[in-house]
């Protein structure tokens, strides 16, 4: 959480942060109703997107209660689930997205190490 150093980047040597992505991100967040957890997930992803992907992303929030038929096609099991459809490879990030570090790893914005 405290490792936030946005865009005042020193050229290369810093551990993880990768330069802002050239491609656009297509993200879809599946939540189940208006629960605190859903709300938390939505807030978290919005914040992360704003901070790391500004202007390069499209985020869609889907309530599975409203569209239950999507669950099957998208292979949703856990909720909330954030799916990174683009860029490939596809990634599923489950949980309320409160661990920003892991979300960034999940979005391939930061390497696992």
């Amino acid at each position: 959480m405290s490792t936030e150093q946005p865009s005042d980047v020193p050229p290369v040597m810093e551990p993880a942060p990768v330069s802002p992505p050239p491609e656009d991100f297509l993200l879809r967040l599946y939540v189940t109703g208006v629960t605190p957890r859903s709300a938390r997930a939505i807030a978290n992803i919005k914040q992360i997107c704003e901070e790391h992907l500004e202007g390069h992303y499209a985020l869609e929030v889907v309530d599975l209660y409203q569209q239950p038929q999507l669950g099957r096609g998208e292979q949703i099991i856990a909720a909330p689930t954030l799916i990174k459809e683009l860029p490939l490879p596809l990634r599923r990030i489950i949980g309320d997205l409160s661990s920003t570090e892991r979300v960034l790893v999940g979005l391939d914005l930061r390497r696992k190490d």
């Binding site: 599946y30 669950g71 099991i77 599923r92 489950i94 949980g95 999940g106």
Partner: peptide
């Protein structure tokens, strides 16, 4: 494909 980032359930 899966990355856990916090609390979740199997509501899906």
């Amino acid at each position: 494909e899966i990355e856990e980032t916090g609390e979740f359930d199997l509501e899906g």
